[in-house]
Structures are given as structure tokens and as C-alpha cells.
Amino acid sequence: MLISILMLSGTLFILIAALGLIRFKDLYSRMHATTKATSFGLLLLVVGVALFFFTGIVLLKAILIVLFIYLTAPLAAHSIARSFRNEDQESRD
């Protein structure tokens, strides 16, 4: 029961992120949606799948995946934002 709820809400958050990617007006707002909602949805999904198998190695891998996602998602967003900002300022000058 708990696993079903976790899986459904995780995929729902990924769907919301994709919806935000369509609906927001400019790039920075779109990145707000994809960075936060996608990592949270994957977090829920990974926790649900790890609880489904529930062996030691799977739990260890799940912790690794979650740590890795949460360390890298803001870095990727920061990298894209900085390159976009450079281009934006150059075209404005």
C-alpha cells in the first residue's frame, strides 16, 4: 500500500515537472520546475522501489542514487543558468 502510494506520487511529481516545462513563460521559471519537482519525484520513486525489494545492497544503492541526484541537480541547473545569463547579457549590450 505504502509502496503504491510512493510510486504513484513520484511519477505524479515528474508529470507535474513536465507540465511546468510547458506552462512557464521563461527559461528560469522552467528550471525551477524541473530542478525541484523532478528530483523530489525521483526521490519518492527510488524510495518506493527500494522498499519493494528491501535487501541490503538495494537499500545501499538507493541511498547512493538519492545522494547523487541531490548533489548534481542544482549543479546542472546552475551551469545552464550561468551559460544562459552570459548569452543574455551579451545580446543585450
Binding site: M7, L27, V49, F52, F84
Partner: peptide, 26 residues
Amino acid sequence: PTIHDRIVAMDLTASIIMGFILLYSV
């Protein structure tokens, strides 16, 4: 409109594929 939008969309696509694989493993 810009190439950065496309990069963000590709990033999201990779996450969606990850979700597919996790669901398939279940």
C-alpha cells in the same frame, strides 16, 4: 525557443527514462 530550453528538456527526459527503468524493475 533557445538551445538552453532543449538542454533542460533533455535533462528531464533522462530523469523520465530513469523512472521507466525503476518501474520496469518492479
